[in-house]
Design a protein around this nucleic acid. Structure first.
Length: 474
DNA sequence: TTTTGAGTTGTTCGA
DNA sequence: GTCGAACAACTCAAA
């Protein structure tokens, strides 16, 4: 434990919250005056996508405001974390640096370098679990290897001790007065230029989201009160508000998975919600942890097939088809509605994510990495583990993946999960005049100013099945 | 040790 | 219209 009189640095990363923040909590408990920082590091790792940068701006502004209410501030540094964390710590004579762990390869490598640099200066570095239910290395099968099947993984995780209860947000905090040090690359939030200017494409995102910790809590409260009951089936309806919409808050840590876990458990115990709904939602949190476990054990999850036989998949190269998919001009209404929702709001309903991903990888036979990259750039919740894992899952190349013959029929999916066509009507206004009986079959109306399907479903399905059959079995 | 059964999210075909 | 089978291969744990 560091010297109580020396300042303690809290290094915020994907944990931009005050409540249930183990690193912040421990730093506050250490008694030293706090220095809260965020390092915007473009020198290492995969650059954030456009939508994620937009979200990050709001999340940083919100955290700064919340710290200011307690008499402090969030300092921003721009540059290589391993260089400037140590430089800052030396500059202020810090007794320690506290942070919550991350699980992507680049992040872990950076943290290792920072830890080494601090150790060389005899400065304590303490890390905590702030973003998973269980650490990825603690949920293993009986032979000590990581799980490759979700159900077995989750059964084992559930049998472990429940994640500890969420920590309270600290009240008034002692902050270290920060004299400006010209040797350090402090920047203002606006200087980082995380939000788009010319052109400003973020209008739809602003209309859809509040990027604050308070909004995260409010989303959770609303979901517990209105969404959790009936979740198991309502979650599949993109025309309804049946999902929690917590994903971007979780991505940037404005709410913690443990806060959600305990809130849902409490709702279950109160008996007002069917246990099946609670279990189903908790399993979604389980998939998030499972994805982190997969990423931890395979850091190149976003670029390398988990099932290596997919390296031989005869993906097509077709830029115009890819472009049509990206812009929501495939001629399949449910696919186009999803892609346009994504473009407009930075988010897409989960059921529709599966449909558009299946369409890209099976109907268009385009490499899942194209989809992963597009989502990385356009999703406000773009997460290094979940995004990669879910794309591989749909493509069939991933852990516990969908079988090759599971090819969504976009018309049937539309009719089943958007039965009145309201979702399509909202995002594909060209089709808004069509009645529910035909809205998922746009060909039925020759007057619609809307593209013809870029592939025939039956032919595309056969092509995808043939392509899968060429793969050598391991 | 070996065997067996089950495993997030489907679709199509033919009886 | 309804219903069951077929569509792989592999992982994991229980028997």
């Amino acid at each position: 434990m560091p010297d109580r009189n020396r300042p303690v640095i809290v290094w915020f990363r994907d944990d931009l919250r005050l409540a249930d923040n183990p690193a912040l909590y421990a730093a506050a408990a250490s008694g030293g005056p706090l220095v809260c920082i965020y390092v915007y590091d473009e020198t290492a790792g995969r650059p954030l996508g456009g939508a994620a940068k937009w979200w990050l701006h709001g999340a940083l502004a919100s955290l700064d405001k919340d710290l200011a209410a307690r008499g402090g501030q969030l300092l921003l540094l721009r540059g290589a974390a391993d260089k400037w964390i140590e430089a800052l710590a030396r500059s202020i004579g810090a007794g320690g640096v506290f942070w919550n762990r991350r699980y992507d390869g680049d992040g872990r490598a950076a943290d290792t370098r920072v830890k080494a640099a601090l150790k060389a200066q005899n400065i304590a570095a303490e890390s905590f679990n702030g973003s998973s239910l269980h650490e990825p290395w603690t949920v293993m099968n009986q032979s000590g290897a990581p799980f490759r099947i979700f159900t077995a993984y989750w059964r084992t995780a559930l049998a472990k001790d429940a994640p500890s209860g969420p920590l309270p947000a600290p009240g008034k905090l002692p902050f270290h007065p920060m004299p400006p040090d010209p040797a350090l690359p402090f920047v203002s939030l606006d200087t980082l230029a995380l939000e788009p200017r010319t052109p400003d494409w973020a209008g739809g995102l602003r209309a859809a989201w509040q990027r604050t910790e308070e909004a995260a809590r409010s989303h959770l409260e609303t979901f517990l009160a209105q969404g959790l009951n009936g979740y198991a089936s309502a979650r599949d309806r993109p025309d309804k508000a049946g999902t929690s919409r917590l994903s971007p808050y979780l991505r940037f840590g404005q709410i913690s998975v443990r806060q959600i876990w305990h809130a849902v458990r409490a709702a279950d115990a109160a008996g007002k919600t069917a246990s099946a709904d609670c279990e189903k939602f908790l399993a979604e949190l389980g998939w998030r942890d499972f994805s982190y476990s997969l990423l931890f054990h395979q850091p190149d999850l976003a670029s390398r097939n988990v099932r290596s036989e997919f390296d031989a998949m005869p993906w097509r190269v077709d830029d115009s088809a890819l472009h049509a998919w990206q812009r929501g001009m495939t001629g399949y209404p449910i696919v186009d509605a999803g892609m346009r929702e994504l473009w407009a709001t930075g988010w897409m309903h989960n059921r529709v994510r599966m449909i558009v991903a299946s369409f890209l990888t099976k109907h268009l036979l385009l490499d899942w990495r194209h989809g992963e990259e597009w989502f990385w750039d356009t999703l406000v919740d773009a997460d290094p583990a979940s995004n990669a894992q879910n794309w591989q899952w749909v493509a069939g190349s991933g852990a516990d993946a969908a079988p090759y013959f599971r090819i969504f029929n976009p018309v049937l999916q539309g009719e089943k999960f958007d039965p009145d066509g309201d979702y399509v009507r909202r995002w594909v206004p060209e089709l808004a005049h069509l009645p529910p009986t035909v809205i998922h079959h746009p060909l039925a109306d020759p007057k619609a100013r809307y593209p013809k399907p870029i592939v025939d479903h039956g032919e595309a399905r056969s092509r995808a099945l043939e392509a899968s059959k060429t793969l050598k079995k391991r």
